[in-house]
Design a protein around this nucleic acid. Sequence first.
DNA 1: CATAAACCTTCCAGCCACTGGAATGTCAAG
DNA 2: CTTGACATTCCAGTGGCTGGAAGGTTTATG
Lengths: 149, 149
Amino acid sequence: MLNSKIEVYVMFQIGELSDQTGVPAKTIRYYEDIGLLSPAKRDDNRYRLYDQKDAERLRFIKSARALNFSLQEIAQILAARDRHEPPCGHVMDLIQSHIDEVERRIQELETLRSELTNLYEAGQGLPEDVHMRSCVCHLIRISDSKRGN
Amino acid sequence: MLNSKIEVYVMFQIGELSDQTGVPAKTIRYYEDIGLLSPAKRDDNRYRLYDQKDAERLRFIKSARALNFSLQEIAQILAARDRHEPPCGHVMDLIQSHIDEVERRIQELETLRSELTNLYEAGQGLPEDVHMRSCVCHLIRISDSKRGN
DNA sequence: CATAAACCTTCCAGCCACTGGAATGTCAAG
DNA sequence: CTTGACATTCCAGTGGCTGGAAGGTTTATG
């Protein structure tokens, strides 16, 4: 075959895996501890050894984490794949519920931002008061009761 | 005095304080544990007893929590007040840095939302693939590499 | 008087996703 | 031979609670 390539099967240590993926070695061990990664092969000196498949799995985990998927959710996706079940339907549902969640959070934070901004503006020029009756500390209470809490 | 009122000094149990403030009793005990509330007076039966001043302090804590202040930050504010130092200058700084933080988070979440939305749209109509090469799981990887991670 | 219920107490453990640090082992270079 | 850079395990801490066990107290009811 003209297009064949010589592929050498190389295994590497945890530090190399960490460099390749940007995931701290501590975190990789942690992922193994909780079963997200299966127990790594070990060298004679008991050092963990990894290959490109491990790197790919870890990269997937990292990407999904960046999209704010929980380790549990990622574990479910990977477990489905490990059982040779296509996980995509489940993943689509997850994505949808994450979108909902993110939008909810954005709303909350925007409310929070405007409350903080109002508070800051109201607090400017107010006197300092140890008893929190005519200072921004008092306003914190007011901004809260306006919300009805 | 015509306008005088009869004020009866009543103390109440933790459940009542919880009802008044909406803060769970567990949380109140926790706040005492970490020193955010000073150790409560005890009844003969060792039950905690509270008065309106405690309720006010707890309401302040609750309001500040609702504005996303950490317990540490709240502890600082209250400690300053307990030392009879007006805490407002410090609080204004805190508010400003919280506004910055909230705006940063909103930005992050909006980026995340658009990534998730893109992903969802790209994933619609794609086949299921156990090996994650032509399904949304694969797209997770792609959306990540586009970010440069 | 017994019992149930609704309170309260302490203490320990768990959540999430790591992270820090101690104490120790292994290996290559100078 | 020592130094430095790797690796290992294990324990503990982060924040802000929350759940649950195992028990004590108080009040109401049969």
